[in-house]
């Protein structure tokens, strides 16, 4: 089944749909990002629930992060996270050298400023997934050269 193409196209439509209905400007941009992030959050919650139904209980936070990087990422983006780093104090950096949702954009510097639109949904996806595993977090993303990107996960201690 080739539903991957379908997901990619749907995601593109979501991004352009959200932005088309909004007006220009910095405030609006933030609002759009929030919208996309929230959609991702909801999807992440649902997905992780279905996904961890038959897996063994996680040992600790790091174990959960590894699960996100491997199994979760492979299901959603057909590849693993390339590099996971942590300071062991609640900050994790997930690096993807060829992020699926950016590969369709031209790789030069030209569209760098638009890249954040295409990462918001995924930030929400991670946050939603973690939240359903009992971890409250803040997820941000940055791109320095396409199509590589980094997701930074800051765990919020309760």
């Amino acid at each position: 089944m080739a539903d991957e193409a379908l997901f990619l196209l749907l995601h593109n439509e979501m991004v352009s749909g959200v932005y088309k209905s909004a007006e220009q400007g910095e405030v609006e941009n933030g609002r759009c990002i929030t919208k996309l992030e929230n959609m991702g959050f909801r999807v992440g919650q649902g997905l992780i629930e279905r996904f961890t139904k038959d897996t063994a209980r996680f040992k600790d936070e790091l174990d959960i992060m590894k699960f996100i990087c491997k199994d979760f990422w492979t299901t959603v983006f057909k590849k693993q996270i390339d590099n996971l780093r942590t300071n062991h104090q609640g900050i994790y950096v997930l690096q993807d050298n060829k992020f699926r949702l950016l590969t369709q954009l031209s790789a030069g510097k030209q569209y760098l400023e638009h890249a954040s639109k295409y990462l918001a949904f995924t930030c929400g996806l991670i946050r939603g997934g973690l939240s359903n595993l009992g971890i409250k977090s803040i997820v941000t993303a940055e791109v320095s050269s396409m199509p590589a990107c980094k997701f930074q996960v800051m765990i919020q201690k309760l």
């Binding site: 089944m1 959609m39 999807v43 649902g46 299901t75």
Partner: peptide, 13 residues
């Protein structure tokens, strides 16, 4: 799972 990803994403949309 990946078809559920599509279903859930569509739902969120």
């Amino acid at each position: 799972m990946s078809s559920e990803l599509f279903t859930l994403t569509y739902g969120a949309l």
